[in-house]
């Protein structure tokens, strides 16, 4: 089975600075691919290129074999779920309205969507009592669960997560990590997960993609990275976070 997302020689510059050097990458179906690297390494740029928030300067990106372009992107975005660090919930809409926002625009029936909503509440362990609340009335962890529900509402083929747990305190974060991993397994979801935290990458990643200064340094399992580092930076990055990794 071919890759769900394929990047071929994709690059992006901001003025003089190269945000992403020409890069090739496959995102495999049903697996969780983790993009990791220090701040400014290009991991978020790569994610934003896939959802077409920015356009590549060169190269092509295909989704399920179809090249992503301005013409088909709105249809493709409905097959992609996207969660960001701050949740990206709209403050003027309740949790329910945030989750159901897209459904009104794709012509799904009310009952179908209500059933799906309750299913997602159960899946993300979010109390349906909280659905009438506004984002400001929810905790950080609850907001991320709502954001995840919104992303999963239309059963996307691909889930993009841009440091989704980065703003949470450690206890909430640990609980959500556990839940997320279960959800991904249960849905056999294709996931692209961006983090700068190695422990999180190891916890989630079927495949880890380490990036630095706009390019992919190494792809593989954590063992590959540790035992066969492609260059000194790999070890440097791992050692910097050793304390966490060894636990």
């Amino acid at each position: 089975m071919s890759a769900l997302i394929r990047l071929t020689d994709v690059s992006k510059r901001y003025g003089d600075a190269a945000a992403l050097l020409p890069t090739n990458l496959d995102i495999e179906r049903g697996k969780t691919t983790v993009l990791i690297g220090p701040s400014g390494c290009g991991k978020s740029t790569l994610l934003r290129l896939i959802i077409h928030l920015i356009e590549p300067d060169s190269g092509s990106i295909t989704f399920d074999g179809e090249p992503i372009s301005t013409d088909n992107i709105d249809a493709l975005r409905r097959r992609i779920g996207y969660v960001i660090q701050e949740g990206g919930l709209f403050p003027h809409l309740t949790a329910r309205a945030n989750v159901l926002l897209m459904t009104r625009h794709v012509g799904k029936s009310q009952e179908e969507m209500h059933g799906r909503l309750l299913e997602l509440c159960e899946l993300t362990r979010f109390s349906d009592q909280l659905l009438p609340r506004y984002p400001v009335e929810l905790s950080g962890g609850q907001r991320q669960r709502v954001s995840l529900m919104r992303a999963l509402m239309l059963s996307p083929q691909l889930l993009l997560l841009d440091e989704p747990l980065g703003a949470l305190d450690p206890l909430v974060r640990a609980a959500l990590q556990k839940d997320l991993k279960k959800i991904f397994a249960r849905l056999q979801q294709t996931v692209l997960f961006v983090t700068h935290d190695l422990a999180e990458a190891i916890y989630f990643g079927d495949k880890i993609v380490l990036m630095n200064e706009g390019r992919i340094v190494q792809k593989g399992s954590v063992t590959d990275l540790r035992e066969k580092p492609a260059e000194p930076f790999v070890l440097e990055f791992i050692n910097a976070q050793r304390g966490v990794v060894l636990t």
């Binding site: 660090q85 919930l89 993009l160």
Partner: peptide, 24 residues
């Protein structure tokens, strides 16, 4: 981040303006 969330959801420009940006 909120503008981009609206875009990434796949909402049309008019819906983004009318349902998201103007109320905000």
């Amino acid at each position: 981040s909120l503008r981009e969330s609206a875009v990434a959801l796949g909402l049309s420009p008019f819906v983004r303006l009318w349902e998201i940006y103007l109320p905000m």
